[in-house]
Design a protein around this nucleic acid. Structure first.
Lengths: 207, 207
DNA sequence: ACCTGAACACCGTTCAAGT
DNA sequence: ACCTGAACACCGTTCAAGT
């Protein structure tokens, strides 16, 4: 009789997520993940085709806790709440945030959230074609905001350098705290810009 | 008398750019770049602190050919032309496009283009604070569009998979060619959305 | 048939030894 | 003083050998 496998796919992703949160993205190597779950590195390949597939699964696990807002709120509010929740969830896991930024999660949780997003855009009165295009625009913006994401204690040195350059630009605002690259304030501003654009195409204004 | 150095920083970035275009991003390793310029790998460290610094310089070289539009056109048109030109330049260099997407070039050419962008937003009537915020939003959107960028013959297998998932989503449009993730059409749509949002905040409409 | 780990073909970077 | 390349401490993944 076949014993249940000592190692499950979920155990691997959960452990990898914790490892990344603790030691950063560069720690999420096959060898170190294997050491963390105390198995041979090759055992991981029994559950995932390669490192990329494993990281995709970890990314999906990172957004598992995000819930789609109830459909009774106005569409603009639902969009804001959902996108903010995804951003927050990703930033809570610094180990995998950059991976999520490089492409949206495609596992069950990612698809669930994508469906919620598309449904909300449909409720906003967009045609199916425009809903898909807008969905992709919002996804792109969210991904880039994550890449620039700054969380307390997780400041990315490279984006910090970008901020310095922006400050030194003619017309820039040296010392302006509001304009911090990747801040929540900055994210909200761009999102409002996009929502205004969507409103202009929407047949059902939010009021 | 000190001879001129056999190897210049420009030679290195130009060679690395060609190598990346020919063999892809994963070919741009210190060792292979060194082999391409026919020097010891360690000689590269005489010109760049580390691999990241070298790739930053290559990214800046990739946008060297982009010129800011003349300031007599309406601001919306100037924004569109400039962002499109940067996107085109980056997509012409598949070896470095993903690196540019992960953060904007910070070298002389990158700063030149950033200054042009900020100036145009100022011409649009935005306050300095809003210009900086909008600049960052546009930069974020451009970066993400690049990450999803699909160029003839350069289709990224991972984003191809995203397209498949989007097609299968409820409310999605299976077989809809217009909605290709990362397409130029898709890029323009999102950019228009943002321009509409900017217009709403602009004191000087383009007409 | 399944699993394991040695081995392969690489990395970026350090640093001691050479000129 | 400058430069070089051997060596270090890793990678992801293949595959032959074991159970």
């Amino acid at each position: 009789m076949p014993r249940p496998p000592r190692l499950t796919a979920e155990q691997i992703t959960e452990t990898a997520l914790r490892l990344g949160d603790r030691d950063g993205p560069q720690a999420m190597t096959m060898r170190r993940i294997a050491a963390e779950v105390d198995c041979d590195p090759m055992a991981l390949y029994r559950h995932y085709a390669n490192r990329e597939a494993l990281l995709d699964a970890v990314a999906d696990a990172a957004v598992a806790g995000v819930e789609a807002p109830a459909p009774d709120a106005p569409w603009a509010e639902r969009l804001t709440r959902l996108l903010t929740a995804i951003r927050d969830a990703a930033l809570e896991h610094p180990g995998i945030a950059a991976h999520i930024a490089s492409r949206p999660p495609l596992g069950p949780h990612g698809r669930r959230l994508a469906a919620a997003l598309l449904g909300t855009l449909s409720d906003a009165g967009l045609s199916p074609a425009d809903a898909v295009r807008t969905f992709q625009t919002l996804t792109a913006y969210l991904a880039a905001s994550l890449a620039m994401g700054v969380q307390a204690g997780t400041r990315d040195a490279r984006w910090e350098q970008v901020r310095t350059v922006v400050d030194e630009l003619p017309g820039g605002m040296p010392g302006e705290e509001l304009a911090v690259v990747g801040s929540t304030d900055q994210f909200s501003y761009g999102l409002q810009l996009l929502l205004d654009g969507i409103r202009a195409r929407s047949a059902a204004p939010p009021a």
